Computed example of a mutant assay.
Amino acid sequence: MPGLLRGVARTAIVSGTATAVSNRVSRRQQGRWAAQEPYQEAPPPRPTSSTEPPPAAPAPDMTDKIEQLKQLGELKAQGVLTETEFEEQKRRVLEA
């Protein structure tokens, strides 16, 4: 039993020391980075005029679906997916 307690105590000391060292290194790095790069504010938003067209609507998800279907087709051609698995995954992509 004393050997077990000694091992537990040693582990606690080692992990505590490692945590303290890690925290100190992190603080030191953060201080160095803060000294190297001054804080930069984000540029002010660009004013929009009424003559500019409204932003384009996001592209439909169809391009993503087509890409997923191509990947599924490749997996089926490689023999990774069976016909049944391919059909199930295709149905899920098209329903989403």
Rank of each mutant, 00 (worst) to 15 (best):
Q68E: 06
E52S: 12
Q40W: 10
E52D: 11
E37K: 15
I66W: 02
M62S: 13
L69A: 02
P54D: 06
P55H: 01
P38D: 07
I66N: 03
P44S: 06
A57R: 09
E67S: 09
I66Q: 05
P60I: 04
T63C: 02
P38N: 08
P44I: 08
T51S: 12
E37S: 14
E41F: 13
P60G: 02
P55W: 00
A57W: 06
I66D: 03
T63F: 01
R46E: 12
R46W: 07
A57F: 08
Q40L: 15
T63M: 10
P43H: 05
E52I: 04
A57M: 06
P55T: 00
P45N: 00
T51M: 10
D64G: 07
P58N: 01
P47V: 07
D64C: 04
Q40S: 14
D64H: 03
P58I: 05
E52Q: 12
S49T: 15
E52W: 10
I66Y: 04
T63N: 05
A56T: 11
P38H: 05
I66S: 05
P55L: 06
E67D: 08
P54Q: 04
P38Q: 08
P38Y: 04
R46S: 13
P47T: 09
I66C: 05
P38L: 13
Q68M: 06
Y39S: 15
P38A: 13
A59F: 04
T48G: 11
E41S: 14
L69E: 00
E67T: 09
A59W: 05
P44V: 11
Y39E: 15
D61Y: 01
Q68I: 04
A56W: 05
S50G: 15
